[in-house]
Simulated assay, not measured.
Amino acid sequence: MPNNPVRPEAHKILEILPQTKMEWTFRVENHIPIRHGQFMQVSIPKFGEAPISISGFGDGYADFTIRKVGKVTDELFNLKEGDYVFLRGCYGNGWPADRLKDRNIVIIAGGTGISPVKSIINALYDNADYAREIYLILGFKNSQSILFADELERWKKAKNFHTVYTLDDEEYRDWNRGMVTDFIEKIPFKRFSGNYECLVVGPPVMMKFVGKRLLEDGIPEDKIWMSFERKMSCAIGKCGHCRIDEVYVCLDGPIFNYTTGKKLVD
């Protein structure tokens, strides 16, 4: 009998790493192949299922950084290390890793939107010769919402990383204050001579204004990539919940080039 493509399987929680009061990282045993930027469906019997981006992965595990915002996630926060969750996937395409080789990379992300891009940032950190210069503009609402503090510090010290960390409206230590769009002017795009790619992920309104600002600065549409995580339910293109015109976000995304992403309007 063929495998049921929507049947989840139990995976043990190996470790729980609190990030903030509302966001925890769950490290779950996993042997399913993963590409940077993909997602899985995480479920708890009797409570439901939710699509969650993979914030990190390695030999035998996958990380899910989850915000406590609903029925499934509320119950997930009641679990402990050694308990089991159910996973199916991986689903969707990923960030265009092949296009990043030997290029300058600009990554602009906000809030929990840093989760879908964190694994590829770490891959660029671990493989310093893969790309040229890495420019990070990462923003959070306030100091209580900062995620991945240890990795933020590690990236800041990397030889080929240039980091701008900002809080929307708070003075805090050595952080900047302002929206991520306020710091795009610091990126030396002209010096790149066209050899670059931009990755953008965050709340929809943030991505809208980042995309607008990049275009105003003369960045070609085909050099902008965005993650559209929208109403994904079945994750295999059957239910239609994530469909916009003829595009299924779960299959054709969640990573889209801006040439396509700009058309994804309800």
Rank of each mutant, 00 (worst) to 15 (best):
R7Y: 03
G94L: 10
S233V: 14
R243T: 06
L79C: 03
D59A: 10
R173E: 13
I184W: 09
D59V: 08
N127W: 02
K208T: 14
A158V: 05
F64Q: 11
K101R: 05
S233R: 11
F64W: 07
E221P: 02
Y165V: 01
F57P: 01
L136I: 05
E216S: 00
G139K: 02
Y165E: 13
T25C: 15
R132K: 15
I16L: 00
D83Y: 11
Y196C: 03
Y61A: 12
Y248C: 07
K212S: 14
D182A: 12
T25S: 14
E229Q: 03
P33W: 08
V6E: 08
D102G: 04
G56Y: 12
I34N: 05
G218D: 06
F47V: 11
P204M: 01
M207V: 15
N78Y: 12
F189H: 08
K46F: 06
Y125F: 15
K141A: 13
P220D: 06
L79S: 07
H36E: 08
N195V: 05
H31D: 12
W24T: 15
G60C: 14
F189P: 10
I146D: 05
K190H: 09
G58C: 03
K262Q: 04
P2C: 04
K21F: 15
K238T: 05
G202V: 07
F77P: 15
I134V: 13
D98F: 10
D217Q: 03
E153A: 14
K208C: 04
D126L: 06
P220N: 06
I105W: 04
H162D: 08
I219F: 13
K223R: 13
H241M: 07
R191A: 15
V201S: 00
L100H: 01
G202M: 14
G82Q: 04
L199V: 07
Y125S: 15
Y196P: 05
K238R: 15
G240C: 09
L167T: 11
V247P: 00
D98R: 12
I44E: 05
N160E: 13
P188I: 03
F192Q: 04
P18Y: 11
V180E: 03
P116C: 05
R88S: 11
D266L: 13
F47C: 07
V85A: 01
N93Q: 09
I236D: 11
M40V: 00
D63K: 12
D222K: 02
G56A: 11
G82E: 02
D59E: 14
S193Q: 10
F47Q: 04
K101N: 00
T73L: 11
